[in-house]
């Protein structure tokens, strides 16, 4: 019980849990990206992959459960810590200045909120398929057609790319920062961890954004 208090109630435990859930969500994002890139392999392969995922049964629900738990915890801690942090400085500085904090680190809440809005839309769009009658009318098993139809709309594609920019910015700080939260700070290790955030952010942004761009350019149809 005491350990539980330490994890949720203390500033150090909370940041470790934030880092842990963040890295779990990052792992999901990277797995999701590797699946999405199968779109380039063609309609048949992508639909077979989507079908394969659906038929994992119990394993799929376990993965979903873990993901949802990490997501809810990450969100809960973000709200709790943000409220505490705002309360810790009731009178703001008349002259605000930033010495070395990165832009990404100062906008974790904003990029996080944008991603939350995106996730709601994304689930409605691709998972539940309720955003337009055209998408509802497609064959249930044809995930490929859903992607192509969805991204043929430049507004939808634009929002996706914007959300991916927010996600990349979030990961740029979050991934590197997680190691510090776990106490993993060492001259030799930092060479890797300091670059890991920007590298993951770059892969995620370029990888995910390439899909709507390819659809709009007609490379995927």
């Amino acid at each position: 019980m005491k350990l539980c208090d330490r994890v949720f109630g203390s500033p150090v435990g909370a940041k470790m849990l934030m880092a842990l859930t963040g890295l779990m969500l990052t792992g999901f994002v990277l797995a999701h990206l590797s699946g999405n890139l199968l779109l380039y392999a063609g309609q048949e392969k992508f639909n077979a992959y989507a079908h394969g995922l659906q038929s994992l049964g119990l394993l799929l629900w376990l993965a979903r459960g873990g993901l949802l738990t990490a997501f809810v915890l990450h969100l809960y801690l973000a709200i709790k810590l943000t409220i505490e942090n705002k309360a810790a400085r009731p009178v703001p500085y008349a002259h605000e200045a930033t010495i070395q904090a990165s832009l990404a680190s100062r906008h974790m809440v904003h990029t996080g909120l944008l991603m939350f809005a995106f996730i709601v839309y994304h689930l409605a769009h691709f998972t539940f398929r309720v955003t337009s009658p055209e998408i509802e009318a497609l064959t249930p098993g044809d995930a490929y057609a859903v992607v192509v139809l969805g991204f043929s709309n430049p507004v939808v594609s634009g929002f996706y790319i914007l959300a991916m920019a927010a996600l990349a910015t979030h990961l740029r700080h979050g991934v590197s920062s997680a190691f510090q939260s776990f106490g993993l700070y060492h001259g030799n290790l930092n060479v890797v961890t300091d670059k890991l955030g920007p590298i993951v952010a770059g892969i995620v942004f370029v990888g995910f954004s390439s899909i709507p761009v390819s659809v709009l350019l007609g490379c995927i149809k």
Binding site: G9, A88, I99, Q100, S105, S181
Partner: peptide
């Protein structure tokens, strides 16, 4: 530290 009402660290290194 928690009882005193300080904020939480977010690794910004200011």
């Amino acid at each position: 530290m928690k009882k005193e009402g300080f904020g939480n660290c977010s690794n910004q290194y200011e």
